[in-house]
Nucleic acid binder design. Structure first.
Length: 722
DNA sequence: TCAACTCAGC
């Protein structure tokens, strides 16, 4: 390239021409300048920070506006790299107030309030945004006092500043103060109103929310959605629906809120209708459907939704896993968890929790350990909640030592963790240990909650500590400020009943401040059966018949009691009632089989029974497996035990024992089986497992409160392990 | 370029 300057004049002329054209070009490129800034900020906003930086590096320096620097800094904050953002800030050729504001809000986004405050204190000049940002920072950190003091110091406030403060007050449930601030606002826009409405809704103060909603001069989608969600969340689904129908405009969130109203109240028919009509079907809505179907027992439909999703997030996986866990499909849950990892989905909190629960109910220490290892790797194991679930898992799997180890590792325990340990010990019948933990907890000043007392009372009940249990029960309210709920009364009925103090148990029931439920009466009935107290048993059975008209279990128990007493006429009468209640008919079963199976569901055990359909499915699967093994060639199967004393076919498998038996079948071959449930291994359970060991040719080791039970070749040997 | 609002998960 070469230049030809003919003369100085020309040179001058040329130069000015060049200068003119330079400004002309600048003029031309000004939109281009803002276009690159836009591009950078777009990439930065969407988390593509490397793209943003690449564009920034490629453009000439004159295009690197302060705005583009700011955008880049904001991007680094957004991608959680505050150090890089700060580095960039230091390199900036010139900074404006926006740059400082970007820094403040960036630090706040990364929950670095101290750094944000430092910037705020040292920046050359502050505007409303700076003030609002820092107030918002304190609100976000829950430091409301700081937020308030700064808010009132603000030289001038705009709607946003007021709104931020209002949000903070509502967030910490200071409704009266919030209302005061709201009334003081010189100008209220839709957002301010919406926040107020949303705050009331969140608290369940629907009438106040509605009053404000009706009074608003203008509403937007968010306002409508808040109101609909408020009604939907608080069990007023039909009101929510009415509002939903008349909304001028709906978005994904609105639809999802409405859907949730139905799924949460178990109204799946309506939920389906909404889901079908919903445009776009966002992931959250799909996840909600999975949970709704699943917890309603429709596992296939839940899975169908899961499989049909175009895109899944970790919530979808955890929802499906949780559903399997809750419905007793442990292997399915583990299988899905494995697939999740194969497909490269990041481990996430809820699914790890579900899987741990699965390990606990499978009592599979091996799986449990594997999950534990993953928890350690992903650093989730430091979480107090996770640790509590881990403790429960180890204890349920019979590894009390490991459970205790984890428990001891946390110097600061929350009530949930204390409860895990107490409940764990009590389920093993280790009353002294449970009570020790309870005492430690109290002496450290951790206030026990309702769950604590269920654990403690159960421990007393299992170990026959009547006086101690009674004393604790009576001190609950005045000493610990925990109001006894129905489950505590049930524990007490169980405690007194087991100890043979049936009249006292009955007195307690009569004095209960609430209406006794099936669990309470069931506890009494169980105790009556143990102590052959017929008159009270009859009362309990009548009550149970009213509460659960379709449940034949109590009558079956009563018929056994009559049979024991030789009152055969009464047996016949009760038998009629059983038949009338045996509405479940399995294919290939005679009525008498059904009667027995119905008894299996409820087992006459004092503890409540899980969902019948799940047990039905278990029975069917178990039956199929046994049939395949040629054990029951006639197509029927009855796992029964002959009670030698009473000469009756007493089917004592309550659902949980059956679950144990079924769980055994699902553990893959070649894996050692260890089972511990919160039950003592008794004769009937033994025979079921013996049968399974024989049919499947497997060696099974079962562990209960005191012993190892070793099942092999249809025989069982026991040995103490303490 | 920076500041406010609605739908989950234990």
């Amino acid at each position: 390239m070469h230049f030809r300057f003919s003369s100085l004049n020309t040179l001058r002329h040329e130069t000015s021409r060049y200068r003119r054209s330079f400004f002309f070009i600048m003029q031309l490129f000004r939109p281009y300048c803002s276009a690159t800034t836009n591009l950078i900020s777009h990439f930065a906003r969407t988390g593509q920070i490397s793209q943003a930086h690449k564009v920034f590096d490629q453009i000439p320096q004159w295009q690197q506006t302060t705005a583009s620097w700011n955008a880049l800094i904001s991007g680094y904050f957004q991608t959680r790299q505050p150090h890089l953002a700060l580095q960039l800030f230091d390199q900036m050729p010139q900074r404006n107030t926006v740059s400082f504001n970007t820094l403040i809000s960036g630090f706040i986004k990364n929950r670095m309030i101290v750094e944000a405050r430092r910037v705020f204190d040292t920046m050359p000049e502050r505007n409303v945004v700076s003030w609002t940002s820092i107030v918002r920072g304190y609100v976000q950190m829950g430091m409301l006092d700081e937020a308030e003091s700064l808010f009132w110091q603000m030289p001038d406030k705009n709607v946003v500043s007021w709104t931020v403060m209002l949000g903070g007050l509502l967030q910490s449930r200071r409704f009266e103060d919030a209302r005061h601030v709201f009334d003081m606002m010189p100008f209220k826009d839709v957002v301010a109103y919406t926040i107020m409405v949303g705050g009331y809704c969140e608290e369940g103060r629907l009438d106040e929310a509605r009053a404000l909603f009706d009074e608003m001069p203008k509403r937007n989608v968010v306002t409508w959605t808040s109101m609909v969600a408020g009604y939907a969340r608080n069990g007023r689904v039909d009101v929510a629906r009415k509002l939903f129908e008349v909304m001028p405009e709906k978005n994904e969130v609105t639809w999802t809120a409405m859907l949730m109203g139905y799924t949460r109240s178990g109204r799946m028919r309506e939920a389906c209708e909404i889901f079908k009509a919903m445009p776009g079907k966002p992931i959250i809505a799909c996840n909600e459907m999975i949970l709704g179907f699943g917890l309603d027992g429709e596992l296939d439909k839940a899975r169908c939704v899961f499989e049909q999703m175009r895109e899944r997030d970790e919530g979808s996986w955890s929802a499906m896993i949780k559903v399997y866990e809750r419905k007793g499909c442990e292997l399915e849950a583990l299988g899905l968890f494995a697939r999740m990892q194969r497909e490269g989905v990041a481990l996430n909190f809820p699914s790890l929790i579900s899987v741990l629960s699965v390990c606990a109910s499978l009592a599979s220490l091996d799986h449990g350990r594997q999950v534990h290892a993953q928890l350690v790797r992903s650093k989730f194991d430091q979480d107090l909640y996770v640790a509590s679930v881990l403790i429960t898992m180890y204890i349920k799997c019979g590894d009390l030592v490991k459970g205790k180890q984890i428990f001891d590792r946390f110097p600061l325990k929350d009530v949930v963790m204390w409860n895990s340990m107490i409940t764990g010990y009590s389920q093993h019948g280790l009353a002294e240990e449970a009570l020790d933990v309870f005492r430690d907890m109290c002496s450290l000043g951790v206030p026990p909650d309702d769950v604590t007392f269920v654990g403690v009372l159960t421990a007393c009940s299992y170990s026959g500590k009547v006086e101690q249990g009674t004393e604790i029960f009576e001190s609950m309210e005045y000493k610990y400020q925990v109001k006894p709920e129905i489950e505590h009364y049930a524990c007490m009925v169980d405690l007194l009943g087991r100890a043979g103090k049936l009249n006292e148990a009955m007195n307690l029931i009569e004095k209960m401040p609430m209406e006794p439920d099936a669990i309470v009466w069931g506890s009494l009935l169980g105790a009556c059966r143990t102590h052959m107290k017929l008159d009270l048993a009859e009362v309990a059975v009548e009550k149970l018949a009213q509460l659960e008209p379709k449940n034949a279990g109590p009558y079956v128990l009563l018929s056994h009691m009559y049979a024991t007493k030789g009152r055969w006429r009464d047996v016949e009468v009760v038998r009629g009632k059983i038949k009338a209640r045996s509405v479940i008919k399995l294919p290939g079963c005679s009525w008498i089989e059904v009667e027995k199976k119905v008894h299996m569901f409820t087992g006459g055990d004092s503890k409540g029974h899980p969902e019948q359909p799940v047990i039905m499915k278990m029975l069917e699967k178990l039956g199929g497996l046994l049939r395949e093994a040629g054990y029951c060639p006639d197509g029927s199967f009855v796992l029964h035990d002959v009670d030698e004393e009473e000469k009756t076919h007493s089917l004592g498998y309550h659902s949980e024992k059956l679950a144990v038996a079924y769980g055994l079948l699902k553990v893959p071959n070649g894996m050692p089986i260890r089972v511990i449930k919160n039950l003592r291994v008794c004769g009937d359970c033994h025979s079921a497992i013996k049968l399974i060991a024989k049919v499947t040719g497997r060696e099974i080791i079962l562990r209960d409160a005191n012993r190892f039970h070793h099942f092999k070749d249809g025989y069982c040997s026991c040995k103490d392990y303490w």
